[in-house]
Nucleic acid binder design. Structure first.
Lengths: 313, 313
DNA sequence: GGCCGGTTACAAGGCACGCTTGTAACCGCA
DNA sequence: TGCGGTTACAAGCGTGCCTTGTAACCGGCC
């Protein structure tokens, strides 16, 4: 399902929230770095676009209408996601010049690091020492090489074994899950799916050679032996988000990291189908070089921060 | 923390994902309804803006680079939130003309309904009967009136008691939680906070009269009697998102619905502080008019859909 | 009563961005 | 060699947004 053309852009949503915080168009203007007239015009244009009055203007300021309050909350969700994108882009952009060089596997970089970084930067800037962080995304083997060659100060991998010569600490867990759209026969099933049924089920999957596809194959091998034969995929797509779109559109079920589908499961766009007789869990580890544990400086701070998040959630 | 000016707009992110799905600029162009040149220019402009190469162009199509894959996943998160905003706006806009008229309390409308609607519409459009839904957001009392007056086919409220003359079904739960920014003394506390400490703690809160503030007061009254005195608030703000921003910026702790802070807790921008000796849970109910249960038509479908989401998650 | 500081909106001019159309270069394959 | 596919460059144009200038409105205070 594509977006309609009645969705305001990010900057417009940002303007709305700034006005809501400031309590007046005039107060929001300097915060946004534009004139009062520009703020007024933007809000008016946005109201015309979405067809909803958002503000009650008065001579003593502007406050959100009832609908505006609801819209503002929805807008906050969008901008929170945009902020994760923002810090992720900043970390990806800083060409190996950061004070803290992080190398992470694709799964972790895509789904966990942005949230960690937003939180970490918030705490760091409250202390007055915002760190400049460099992020490189690669597969687990390359990440280990980066850390061992001291090209990265800190690595995050999903490998079950710790590469030799490196220290590590488990910071999170990951699990492959079988998901289907609501309304799919599998989604209504009461009994868990067993490995024999799973291999006979055509899936929407990544191209062969991808990490999640390999992990599923390994788990099936250890449950069924090496002689099993997986049903041909319905579709083979190159990105996780393409698979999620296809599954949500009803193409069929898929096996993906629970991290990739957490949002969809929470909102019900996808349904998790229980599996029995397969171990699909993986530990996600921070790794670093050196004999001492924990590592020094900003790397230690970040690991500690992530551990604190996990512990208290 | 404000967004930097290096974040692409929603339409640009949409273009990126369309290209990733289609596998070529040319293929994405008709899907987006623009020319091939426009797609090419947009992607080039976006790469220049963020300073990262996203695509490897070849004469046989374009595929995402390693960085592009990561960025695409982050973009998907943003667009998913934007889609919830989109369906929410559509429901809010349709002036009481919808086939299914829903009236919901602010908490539910802000945090749960968009996700439910996206999912519901996806299933409905897969069946070929997408419903036109009208949404009105109000407080619980007004929602009950809407349903009783047959101005709304379905209501969602967080009241502990079922209004007389109406049928109801619990579809979710809500709980007020104490949250603090990471690094705050409360966030590092090992023992839960008891009611006496809570009333002595200055909070960032809603203006007096808000539902969550009343609910907290009621819970404290039942634990401490009516003689307690709550410490003066640090700040009194008019929207939930303003409170979240203030807390994340280090203004102090706050008591909010867990639904409002679920994202922040998951990503670690906020930390939940355990509370003991207070019952802060509330049941969220669907309510409808009539002697028969469940109600008829689209309302029944939606309730069933939500129940299925809850059951399997 | 009059004025000042705050709020909002309207108007004109200009810049910049994005789209379209037309054109060209490149590659693989028949 | 030609065709169908891909991408990129160039010119022209419309539109959206910002700025500056102006005006109207309200409340408080001297």
């Amino acid at each position: 399902m594509r977006l309609s053309n009645r969705v305001p852009e990010l900057t417009a949503l940002d303007v709305l929230l700034a006005v809501a915080r400031a309590g007046s168009l005039n107060g929001a203007a300097p915060e946004l770095g534009v004139s009062q007239q520009a703020v007024s015009a933007r809000i008016t244009a946005m109201e015309a676009q979405i067809g909803i009055r958002l503000l009650t203007r008065s001579t003593s300021g502007s406050t959100l209408t009832a609908e505006g309050t609801v819209v503002a909350e929805w807008a906050t969700r969008v901008l929170d996601a945009a902020q994760e994108l923002d810090v992720g882009l900043a970390a990806l952009r800083a060409e190996h010049r950061g004070r803290l060089r992080v190398s992470a596997s694709l799964t972790i970089a895509e789904h966990l690091l942005p949230g960690w970084l937003v939180s970490f930067q918030a705490v760091a800037s409250a202390r007055g020492d915002a760190a400049e962080i460099t992020l490189t995304a690669a597969n687990s083997g390359v990440v280990s090489q980066h850390v061992r060659a001291d090209t990265a100060d800190l690595g995050f991998i999903e490998s079950p074994t710790v590469p030799p010569g490196l220290r590590s600490r488990v910071v999170a867990h990951d699990e492959l899950v079988l998901v289907a759209p609501p309304g799919h026969p599998l989604a209504k099933r009461r009994r868990p799916v067993d490995p024999h049924l799973l291999v006979d089920t055509p899936l929407v999957s990544r191209e062969s050679g991808s990490g999640t596809r390999e992990a599923l194959a390994a788990a099936l091998r250890s449950a069924l032996g090496s002689g099993y034969r997986q049903a041909d995929p319905i579709l083979a797509l190159s990105t996780t988000s393409a698979i999620r779109s296809a599954v949500r559109a009803g193409a069929g079920p898929a096996v993906l990291s629970e991290l990739a589908v957490a949002d969809d499961l929470a909102t019900g766009r996808l349904v998790r189908v229980p599996i029995t007789g397969l171990d699909l869990r993986r530990a996600l580890r921070a790794i670093w070089l050196g004999t001492r544990t924990p590592p020094a400086g900003a790397a230690r701070d970040l690991i500690g921060h992530i551990a604190a998040l996990r512990q208290l959630s």
